[in-house]
Structure formats: structure tokens, C-alpha cells
Amino acid sequence: MLHIKRFLKKSPWVLHYNTGSCNGCDIEILACLSPRYDLERLGVLNTGNPKQADIFLVTGPLTHRCHDRLLQLYSQIPDPKVVVAVGSCTCTGGVFKDMYNVNNGIDSLIPVDVYVPGCASSPELIMDGIVKALEILEGK
């Protein structure tokens, strides 16, 4: 069993959820999987099931309706897990700061390990963030 954990870290699977962003960061995450940047060569696979994921990519300021869904997804991901906040609005709220239906960044709800700034974060920055997340995952 201990061995499996070692190999899990070689191929982290990514879960992506949008909590109210403008789609800009989401299409850049999609562009990360495209041939130009190709995250899959690092062993990263985009998955739809939270129970198989290791890295949680979140985009967007936390809207009220996404609140419960984000918490549910976060609790369904098995340990060890790393949360990456992609985009300025995910880190602090960005332009959407203090709007009436927004909670100013996801760190008000779940612990965040890596903050990736940028509006919209370029694939280069997202890859930097995932590489950093891998280092953290190794230590956990």
C-alpha cells in the first residue's frame, strides 16, 4: 500500500471547478491540455471524478450558489490533496471584490496551497502553478 502512494505522486490527476470566473482561466486550462503546452506529458490528466483527483484547480471568486458545491467537492477529494487558485479573482476577488453575490476569493472557505495570479492566467503561469503544486504534494 505504501508503494502505491509513491507512484500516485508521479501522475497527479486534476479536477477543475469554476466558481464564477469569466471563463478566461478555464479556456486557458483547456489550452494547457492542447498540443502546444501539453500538460499530459507531465503525467497530469484532467478527470471529472473528485474521488480520483489529487490537484484541485479552482477558478473564480466564490459565488453564493457555488459555496456548497465547492465544499462538497473539496471534501470528496482524498488526502493528500493540493488546492491551486487560478486567476486574480480566485486569489483575492480581483475585479469582483465586494460585489453582492461574491465571497472574495476561495481562501475564505477552503485552505489554498498555491496562488496563481494573472487575468487571465496564461498557460505558462498555470503550468508553473501545477509544478509548484507537485512539489507540495511530494512533501505531504
Binding site: N18, S21, T63, R65, C66
Partner: peptide, 24 residues
């Protein structure tokens, strides 16, 4: 993904800034 941009455009931002906000 309702954030309330319409309200913020009239209360938080000046008309010169709104162009950058509605882009988001």
C-alpha cells in the same frame, strides 16, 4: 456564476473603468 456586475457598474466603478469590468 451570478456575481452582480450590473449593480457594481453603477455603484463601485466610474464610467471610464466600467469598460474593463464588463470585459470580465
Amino acid at each position: 456564476v451570478h456575481r452582480g456586475i450590473e449593480k457594481a457598474c453603477t455603484e463601485k466603478f466610474e464610467y471610464k473603468q466600467v469598460g474593463y469590468v464588463v470585459a470580465r
